[in-house]
Structure formats: structure tokens, C-alpha cells
Simulated assay, not measured.
Amino acid sequence: MPLSDIARAVEDRFHRDSIPVLKRKGWRPRVIPYNGYGTAGNAQATAAAGPSGPSGTTSGQSMARVLARMVMRPPNAPKEGPLFVSLPERLPASPSQARDIAVTSLAEAQRGWRVFIDAPVPYLPVTVRVGSRSVRTRADHNGYIDVVVRDHDLAPGWHEAQIDAAGAGTVRCGLLIVPPGPRLGIISDIDDTAMVSHVPRVLVAAWNQLVKHSSAREPVPGMAQLYRQIQAANPGTPIMYLSTGAWNVVPTLRAFFRRHGFPDGPALMTDWGPTNTGWFRSGIEHKRTELRRLMIDLPEITWLLVGDDGQHDPLIYGEAARQHADRIAAVAIRRLTPAQQVLAGGLTVHPMGIGPEARTLAEADVPVVVGTDGYELARLLPPELLTTAAYR
């Protein structure tokens, strides 16, 4: 038996054995919700548009993808996110600063290693309700649910799905229902694309997510403005944040995005730890799989793919563009400095000029732009993406 299988079996056994002990200490199941996405059928879209709304919408069954995790928590634990909260590192110098800290820092200035102190509840019975529809399921062996509810009655826009888990009560999670019809969408990487990392990529988990306070992370200049400008020019543009980071950090990422003006959107992360194929999940395969699923789930969207050249985004996006050129509006790559390249685990020579990543991207029959930040990418992208509703 491979060592990774043994490690996975040990992990599962530890989780199962820990639940009775935690229950005796007063801990109970808790649902940690994540934002999901879906589509609206013709009836919902027509009702939302009203008598004077658009006609000629594409037929199709509505669907919604609901994501969450079941964990054990003590009664006084935060509603979501880390199990423990620490004091902020800086003291307020004025009443306004004290108010800002109270709102944005006290709940978010936790040491990131506490994010991973979670005891998942495997196989917990769960009922998911989206509009008038409901689906019964069970959490997987790591406590996650990833459920599709079809033929719901929700109109386009943000809604809430309802998750009822045995012993955990009812929790609501955000659900972005995308309007029908051809439109533009954004898929954005997070580390080194939306959020700046100053440490080696192999230590990002140990630094950005395990040590640094969330309030100390820095946004990539101009990236939030770029996404908002695209959404303003193309109303109804959804944004999906696709990352190889762990699901555990999603609550912290939400606060980071709100603080720095990034548009709301589902974050599609991954689960760390041993799998049936190895010690760790493949970040490349995770992104490839989610890209394919987004194209299947949202078939009328043409995507703008945004990433960085630190590791594999040019290769993954280039493959997607070669295979689905009609579904990719453009590829935007943030160029890292030579020092950032080394920290990101890339080559000491700029990888956009050599190697399979550059060749794959060059062979894609879509516009490709490379810039150092969101401001430069905005100047280089096709103007119609930022100034007119080309996909309406």
C-alpha cells in the first residue's frame, strides 16, 4: 500500500476518533459556508427582466453549485473562519482608527495557523435548499459538500442557499446566479495575481496563511480597479477566484477582498493533504479541472483569464485557450520581477520567454497581454473589454 494511502487512512481515523472527545467537551458540528454560483432558466430570467426585458434568451435548465464544510467547533467559536482570534498588532491612534480596527481587524487579525485548527465532520447528513428546491446529501470524508441543485426558481443576481446539517442548525451561503445569454466572465488567480507574496511560493502556506496577519497582506496595484472597470463596461460579468490555496482561508480572503475593493465572487480552492494519488493534491490539475467545469456549468460565458507567470498559469491558460479559443476572450498575465520569479518557484530566467508555458500560450489563438500590475494590463487588454458591452 502506498505511503500516501496509509497517511490518508490515519488522517481519516484521527478525524473520526476526535469527534466523540470533542463532543464530551461541548463541541458541536458547525457549517462553514462558501460562495457558490449557478445559472438561471428562461422563466426566472424573463420574470427578473419584466415585460420590457430582453427577449430571445437561450433555453436551458437552471443549476446552482453549493459549497460548504462541516467542522466541529466549541460554542463560543467565531461564526466562521479561524477557531481563535488574537488582538491586533497595532493600537489605534484616533477614534476613527479604533472604529476601523474594530470593524476590519479584530475579527481578521488572527494568526493564520489557527485557520487550520479544525476537526472536520465526515459523512454528516446535510440538506441543501436553493429557492424552492432541496437536495439531501452527506459530507465527504473531509467534511466538504459540493452539491448541484437543478431547476431552481432564482432570478439572476446574488441570493442565499440554505444548508441544514444534522446537529448544526441552518446556515446560509452566498450564491451568484449568472444571467442567461452571451456575456464576459473573469477567472482570476489569487497569489501573486490579486494578492502580493514576498516569500517563496513553497512557503506561502507557511507564511501568508500560517503566520502573517490577514490585514498585512498587500493587493496587486490596479487589479481590483481593472476587475471593476470590466464589470462596469459589461454588466452581469461574474468573477471567479481560482486558486490552489486551502478552503480554510476563504473567510480571510473574503475580508481581504472587501478591504481592498475587489468584486465579490466565488473562490474555488482545494483541500490539502494526502489523496489516493499522492501526498498532496496537484495544483495544476485542480485548476484544469475547475476551468473545464466552469466552461461546462456556464456555457454562454466567454472568459478573461488572469494569472501570473510565477509558475503554471501561462501553461494552464494556454492549454485552455488552444482547446477552447471560442470561449476565451483574452489571457492577461502579471509579469513578476526576477526576484519575485525566484520566490514564486519559477525560473531565474523569465519563463514567459522560454519553455512550454510560453510556447503553449503563443500557440493560443486569443489575445495575450503581459504587464506588471492591473494598470498596465488595463492599457494592453482589447479596448472593447473595458469600454463597451461587447458580450451583451
Rank of each mutant, 00 (worst) to 15 (best):
L3K: 11
L3V: 15
D5C: 01
D12K: 13
V21P: 02
W27L: 06
R30M: 11
Y37R: 08
N42I: 14
N42Q: 13
A43K: 08
Q44R: 04
L67H: 12
M70D: 07
P78R: 05
V85F: 08
A93I: 11
A93W: 11
S96H: 07
S96Q: 12
I101Q: 15
E108H: 11
Q110K: 10
G112I: 02
P120N: 06
Y123F: 15
R133Q: 14
A139D: 01
V149A: 02
R150A: 12
E160R: 14
E160D: 15
D164M: 12
A165N: 02
A166Y: 08
R183V: 05
L184Y: 04
D192V: 06
V196A: 11
H198S: 14
V199E: 06
W207G: 03
P219A: 06
A232F: 07
T237R: 03
Y241A: 06
S243W: 04
T252H: 08
L253P: 00
G265E: 01
G265S: 05
A267N: 06
G273T: 07
G273E: 10
R281T: 15
K287I: 07
T289Y: 10
E290L: 13
M295I: 04
W303F: 15
P314Y: 02
G318W: 04
A321K: 01
R322D: 04
H324E: 11
I328S: 03
I328D: 05
A330E: 04
L343T: 06
A344K: 00
L347D: 13
V349I: 13
H350D: 15
G355D: 02
R359K: 14
R359I: 10
A362M: 03
A362T: 01
V368P: 00
D373T: 04
Y375L: 09
